[in-house]
Amino acid sequence: MSEYERSRTMPALPELVFDQVSDLDRLDRWLPQDLHAQVEDPPAVTVHEDRTGHDVRALFEVRPEQLRAEWGTRDQGSYAGWLQVAGIGSGASEVTVHLSFFDEDHAPPREAVHASLDRSLERLAEEVRMRGEQAG
């Protein structure tokens, strides 16, 4: 099994950050750019991966009371992940994303996953910033 984790601080209340994460219509705005989620009957989604051209049946569940989202493949159980938002005071949040690949032979290189996670967290921070500006 290969596991990866990255965190980022965001200057926004945790509820605002989680609101962006849990909006299924906005997943593509912060997911890695080569992944595209099509919401079916939540929590069911289909994820298209540009790199392979494959569609994968997945689940995306949110736990608002925990400010947590969890996801994974539906059929083969080869991949899972979670994202946790935590308030760190002064109106800021820390967002941690964790990925687990259960098949070592299909796990991407560590550097590629870290770069993708960092970029996703950057995209999420930008979405949260823009949403905050629109609300203010």
Rank of each mutant, 00 (worst) to 15 (best):
H98Y: 12
D34M: 12
V97A: 06
Y79G: 06
D41V: 13
P11C: 03
S100H: 11
T46I: 14
Y4H: 14
S116Q: 10
E61K: 12
A112L: 10
E104S: 12
H54K: 15
D34K: 07
R63S: 12
D105N: 09
D34G: 01
D103P: 01
P64S: 11
A69S: 14
S120F: 00
L27P: 05
E5G: 06
W30F: 14
S120C: 01
D23K: 08
L16F: 00
R68L: 15
V17Q: 00
A44L: 13
P14H: 01
A115H: 07
A125S: 08
H54E: 15
V128W: 00
G53N: 10
D19M: 04
E61R: 15
E126L: 05
Q76C: 03
A112K: 10
V128S: 00
E5R: 11
E61P: 04
R119S: 08
S7W: 02
F102C: 02
R110K: 10
R51H: 08
W82C: 12
V113K: 03
P109M: 10
A12F: 04
S120V: 05
L16G: 09
G77R: 11
R129T: 09
D41T: 14
F60E: 07
G87A: 09
L27R: 04
G132T: 07
S120T: 04
R51E: 13
V113N: 04
E65Q: 14
A80F: 08
Q38M: 14
L83Y: 00
I88C: 02
Y79D: 06
T73E: 15
V47T: 13
V47L: 15
S7F: 01
P64K: 07
R129C: 04
P32D: 06
P42M: 05
R26I: 01
G53E: 06
G87V: 02
A125N: 00
D50Y: 08
R26T: 08
L35N: 04
A125V: 03
P64I: 07
L99R: 01
R29A: 11
V56C: 08
E49Q: 13
F18T: 02
T52Q: 09
T52W: 10
L117V: 09
H114K: 02
L121W: 01
R57Q: 13
I88S: 06
A107S: 14
T52K: 02
Q134K: 10
A92D: 05
D23E: 11
E133Q: 13
R119I: 01
D28V: 10
R74C: 10
D50T: 15
V47A: 12
L99G: 05
D50L: 14
S22P: 03
S116G: 15
L99Y: 08
T73R: 08
E61V: 11
H36Q: 15
I88G: 05
D50I: 11
G132M: 04
M130C: 04
T96K: 02
A107M: 07
E126W: 03
D28C: 14
R8E: 08
D55I: 03
A58L: 08
M10W: 00
T9W: 01
G136N: 09
